[in-house]
Design a binder for these strands. Structure first.
Lengths: 120, 120
DNA sequence: CAGTATCCCTGATGATACTG
DNA sequence: CAGTATCATCAGGGATACTG
């Protein structure tokens, strides 16, 4: 990329990106949809213990509005609505992976000598 | 290391990582410290318009506790305290870059077209 | 200079009940 | 089945004043 970010715009760009992921349940939902899964509202409800219908629909709607999740309404009775990721939503994988990698690096740096003594 | 993450542990791992970055001012502070910069409390205060002393110290302390920021106290009067990133804090760069890249990809995917065609 | 100490307020979340 | 509608709670953050 030929983009050049100043300190300010980079910080803002990432803030905006993070804002899309903030929310008590978004990541959990995301991980249930990764890999091309198409799930009904009730599937997600059952798959995510502790979530309320209000929060489930709220987080889904936000991510839909943000272009991360796609909502598919089947015109029938009783209602059938499915959710899956957009291409862009699916494209989150590398970024989340980088975060996980960073998280895992904690052990190999000298940040925390006293805690988390794991096996080699 | 041969990590294999289940859907649940991966979601949780990333949630934990994100939690370390959440906070109204953390990213801004981070970006002022990236590149090995060592800044005094008052430097940061001046560099970040709109931040209060309370929030500045709060966010710094949290990141220090989390092993992202290092606090260096010089024993002298008047006080002199400097802040910089730990190695692990500096290692955030690739992850944040990945997020920025994802953010920029929004245009090249067909998210916008999908937004237009919400109904079935 | 580098912080503490208070008070206040809003937005995100949770609990619960209702509906086309 | 797939949502709405209300009400209650609580932590994050802002404003302001004080201090070793």
């Amino acid at each position: 990329m030929s983009h050049h970010y100043t300190r300010e715009t980079a910080a803002q760009g990432i803030e905006n990106a993070l804002k899309l992921l903030e929310g008590r349940w978004k990541l959990v939902i995301l991980f249930h949809l990764f890999g091309g899964h198409v799930l009904r509202f009730s599937d997600l409800e059952r798959a995510i213990p502790g979530i309320s219908q209000k929060m489930l629909i709220q987080q889904l709607r936000q991510m839909e509005k943000d272009g991360i999740v796609r909502r598919i309404v089947h015109q029938q009775v009783p209602p059938k609505v499915e959710y899956c990721l957009t291409d862009w939503g699916q494209a989150l994988c590398p970024a989340l992976d980088a975060l996980l990698t960073w998280s895992a690096q904690r052990e190999s740096t000298d940040v925390e000598r006293e805690e988390a003594t794991r096996q080699d």
